[in-house]
Each structure stands twice: as structure tokens, then as C-alpha cells.
């Protein structure tokens, strides 16, 4: 999968602070075309309105969680190929397994750093 730094990225988190952190770290990695959503249902609406090259989502949100968003994305014929990275504090083995089974491309545990984000992007898209 080729990496395009100009691709639109959707970041999803109910903590505005975390949205700012992810946005800024992506900016440092050269990704500036970033949109935000504060829960799964808002993200799903955005995804159906615009073509995104990547979704980076938190897990624990209301009313729609990150794993529910992932399942919706994978069940949608138009969206199912969108790369999806989960960034979450949920660090139990069963969470990782559930996310993988639901079709996640990579999984980052909070707190994370720029190097981890960069390496996971590289793992999904090839060299960043």
C-alpha cells in the first residue's frame, strides 16, 4: 500500500487534548490533511462524506466505540478497504485480539510517542 502524505486522515477521539496531540505529531511526520471526530458515529458520517486514506481511532468513546466504528467500516462496501489504526489505553490481550479479528491494521497503546506512530504508519503503508 503506497503512502501519500497529502492523503486525508481522520482522527477520532473523545479527548480534545488527544486529538491535538495526534494532529501535531502527524504534522511533524508530514501529514497535514487531518480531520477530527469525537466519537464513532461522527466518524462514520465523515467517512461517508469524504474519502479518507487512513482512520486513526480511540477505542473507548460514546455513543459509538472505536471497535464498533471499525466493524461498521469493514462491513461497508465502500469503506472496507480504508486502513484503520487503533490508538487506545485498552491494553489487554483480548482487546488486541478483538480488534485484529474486526480487521484493524495496527494497534498503538497510549501513552505513545512519535516514533511509535511513525513505525506503525510505516507498517501499514510501507516506508513513511
Amino acid at each position: 500500500m503506497a503512502m501519500d502524505r497529502a492523503m486525508p486522515i481522520l482522527i477520532v477521539d473523545d479527548y480534545k487534548t488527544m486529538l491535538r496531540i495526534i494532529r501535531n505529531l502527524l504534522k511533524q511526520l508530514g501529514f497535514e490533511n487531518v480531520d477530527e471526530a469525537t466519537d464513532g458515529s461522527m466518524a462514520l458520517t465523515r467517512l461517508r462524506e469524504k474519502n479518507y486514506g487512513l482512520v486513526i481511532s480511540d477505542w473507548n468513546m460514546e455513543p459509538m466505540t472505536g471497535i464498533e466504528l471499525l466493524r461498521e467500516v469493514r462491513a461497508d462496501a465502500k469503506l472496507k478497504g480504508t486502513p484503520f489504526i487503533m490508538i487506545t489505553a485498552e491494553s489487554k490481550t483480548e482487546n488486541v485480539i478483538a480488534a485484529k479479528k474486526a480487521g484493524v491494521n495496527n494497534y498503538i497503546v497510549k501513552p505513545f510517542n512519535a516514533a511509535t506512530l511513525e513505525s506503525k504508519l510505516a507498517a501499514v503503508f510501507g516506508s513513511v
Binding site: 505529531l25 505513545f112 510517542n113
Partner: peptide
């Protein structure tokens, strides 16, 4: 300067974790 700002962004992760 960029390296140091990245460090601050990374450190601010704490707010989300402590909040949860």
C-alpha cells in the same frame, strides 16, 4: 526545537491516561 516540541506533545499524553 521541533524535537523538543515533539517531546512536549508526547508528554501531554498523560492527560488522557490520568483522565481515564
Amino acid at each position: 526545537l521541533v524535537d523538543q516540541t515533539i517531546r512536549v506533545f508526547e508528554a501531554c499524553n498523560f492527560q488522557d491516561i490520568t483522565g481515564q
